[in-house]
Design a protein around this nucleic acid. Structure first.
Length: 566
RNA sequence: UGGGCUAUCGUUCAAUUGGCAGGACAACGGAUUCUGACUCCGUUAAUCUUGGUUCGAGUCCAGGUAGCCCAGCCA
């Protein structure tokens, strides 16, 4: 699959700053014209649309420059990581359409090398074992504006440090008793450089190395060395790691290792969307949603279930671009990308969400005729479907008004409209119950209009979708809205939590009726119910009782016209 | 009274590196339409601020302003 990268880039437009950097590196020969990136998630949760930006960037760059991209699990904190997350990440990256071939790595695979390198640092006098408590270390670090001070253990001899570190590794000490720190500068203006912690003691089971290790390396020590070992050229990460770049370079320079170039870019923000891993974990763990693949979530697995396509997500990532300025993309941009793709590929079917009965009084009772209609009017290659028609049909309640305002094009007393691909009908009468609710609309059809046109060529303003009342299958439609109401759910008013910004209507389930053919669409397949929007068949459904998740609706100007006429 | 980074239409990304500020999304108007969808055409709309250099500044220089990140034994 080779779609999704840069096809949205308009002609003549400039490249983003990262591609400019790569071009410059290729021109200078810095990496021998090699491009080797990596996508390095920590397996402590499921991937979300924010990760997709990084995945498309890293894998896309490799594709464009004939390079390679590794998948590396940054698993140095055994407390948070699990194989469930590893598996889900692999599934999601593949689903997005990217392939890391045989380059699947784990930081934990480097634990041995990392340990040796740490000893190296100790021997060089560039690292020491500190026995201060976590609280004391924080105090000694100073503040953002005041320099820190040296730990009393900072001048331990190389021999003592080596001995202590080896015993840390052997598991002789309790968690928190010691840490290994780099010896840099406690007065450094960049707080990251004030003798950063390199190793901590953790008596925990690691999802891969099990109980083998008692000490685990920190991100700052691990990531740069992993990049170096793998021959990465361009190490791309998000803006919050800007301050860590100095340490990234320090470690590799001090150890005299090959040095990739770390470059930071702004992470993805989307209006009304929570992309904080911490909060997503909370939503799942506290069961505010039904698991990581709940279609209301911006996780890749949730979006997949809701019916978003990998093509659409890749297109989205290409369109939003890459920059260093913090930004928040409008959700409408994502919706646009989904509609654009689904419009091309999704077969059309008809369904009615809120049915009202139409009786065609001059159509023979008991008769059923089958109409053939295209699965996609803009793509004949998709073929046709057959749909039954009968005397009693259902139409959408919204498609009829007893007292229509101006510019209402659909059914109303005395008015003629077209039933899509079937007949012209004219409203003759309306029946109500005691409460005044419409129970039945009586119509007459024009037999001459079979197929949706007439010999006299007269026009109608409206075309309705419909399903035959006796032949239609019952189905369940789940109408998902974005889970969050607030423009920026990260920024909630005082006294509230982000949970307060959840839209209580984010999930509505309605019983609906659709063409018999819907039962033929298996889980994951997308289709468009005419005039209702794009839906995805959910694995929860069965052929007898299909369930459809709404991906996105269609644009509809009816609401605007109504507002205007008021 | 620290360090690092950022600032262009409502949103987002560009601007051949000093030479007419452009695209996409959104909004608005129109055409078309057997989905009020799609498609097509058009319109609105931006260089944070104050100076300076220059024939010419979004771009270079100086000073402001605003926002983001950093004081985990998280990543």
């Amino acid at each position: 699959m080779e779609t999704g990268n840069r096809e949205a880039r308009p002609e003549g437009a400039g490249k983003d700053f990262i591609r400019n950097i790569i071009d410059a590196d290729n021109a200078s020969g810095r990496f021998n014209k090699r491009v080797h990136t990596r996508f390095p998630p920590e397996p402590n949760g499921y991937l979300h649309i924010g990760h997709a930006k990084s995945i498309c960037l890293n894998f896309g760059l490799a594709r464009e420059y004939n390079g390679k991209c590794n998948l590396r699990f940054d698993d140095t904190n055994p407390l948070k990581e699990s194989t469930e997350y590893v598996d889900s990440i692999k599934t999601d990256v593949r689903w997005l359409g990217f392939d890391w071939e045989d380059r699947e790595f784990f930081s934990s695979d480097y634990f041995e090398k990392l340990y040796l390198l740490a000893e190296e640092l100790i021997k060089m006098g560039k690292a020491y074992v500190d026995s201060l408590s976590a609280d004391e270390i924080r105090e000694y670090r100073g503040t953002l504006t005041a320099p820190g001070k040296n730990s009393p253990y900072r001048e331990r001899s190389v021999e003592e440090n080596l001995d202590l570190f080896r015993r840390m590794k052997a598991g002789e000490f309790a968690e928190g008793a010691h840490v290994l720190r780099a010896k840099i500068d406690m007065a450094a203006p960049n707080v990251v450089m004030r003798d950063p912690t390199l190793y901590r003691i953790r008596h925990a089971e690691h999802h891969r190395s099990g109980g083998k290790w008692r000490i685990y390396p920190m991100y700052d020590f691990t990531h740069c060395i992993s990049d170096s070992l793998e021959g990465i050229t361009h190490s791309l990460c998000t803006l919050e790691f800007e301050n860590n770049r100095e340490l990234y370079d320090w470690v590799l320079e001090t150890l005299n290792l090959y040095r990739p170039q770390q470059t930071e870019f702004a992470r993805l923000n989307i209006t009304r969307t929570v992309l904080s891993k911490r909060k997503l974990i909370q939503l799942v763990m506290e069961k505010h949603v039904n698991g990581w693949d709940d279609p209301r979530l911006p996780t890749l697995s949730g979006m997949r279930r809701r019916g978003y396509t990998p093509e659409a997500i890749r297109e989205f990532c290409a369109r939003i671009g890459i920059a260093r300025a913090d930004s928040t993309v409008e959700y409408g941009m994502l919706d646009f990308c989904v509609r654009e793709h689904l419009n091309r590929v999704a077969p059309r079917l008809m369904a009615v969400l809120d049915p009202v009965k139409v009786v065609i009084e001059n159509y023979p009772a008991g008769q059923t005729e089958w109409f053939e209609m295209p699965l996609n009017p803009e793509d004949e290659s998709q073929g046709c479907r057959k749909t039954p028609f009968s005397r009693e049909i259902w139409i959408e309640r919204d498609d009829f008004m007893e007292n229509p305002p101006a510019k209402f094009f659909r059914l109303a007393p005395g008015r003629e409209v077209r039933l899509r691909y079937a007949y012209y009908i004219t409203c003759k009468d309306v029946k109500h119950d005691e409460a005044g609710n419409i129970t039945e609309i009586i119509c007459a059809y024009d037999p001459e209009s079979r197929g949706g046109g007439t010999p006299d060529g007269r026009k109608v303003k409206g075309t309705l979708h419909w399903v035959a009342a006796n032949e239609a299958v019952a189905l369940e439609a789940r109408l998902y809205e974005h889970l969050f109401d607030k423009d920026d759910p990260e920024d909630v008013p005082a006294g509230q939590t982000f949970l307060d910004s959840i839209n209580p209507n984010s999930l509505r389930v309605v019983k609906a009726f659709g063409e018999p053919a819907v039962a033929g669409y298996g889980p994951g397949s997308r289709l468009q119910f005419e005039r209702l929007g794009y839906f995805c068949a959910d694995p929860d459904g069965t052929p007898e009782n299909p369930v459809f998740n709404r991906t996105v609706g269609l644009k509809d100007s009816w609401g605007k016209i109504a507002a205007k006429t008021e």
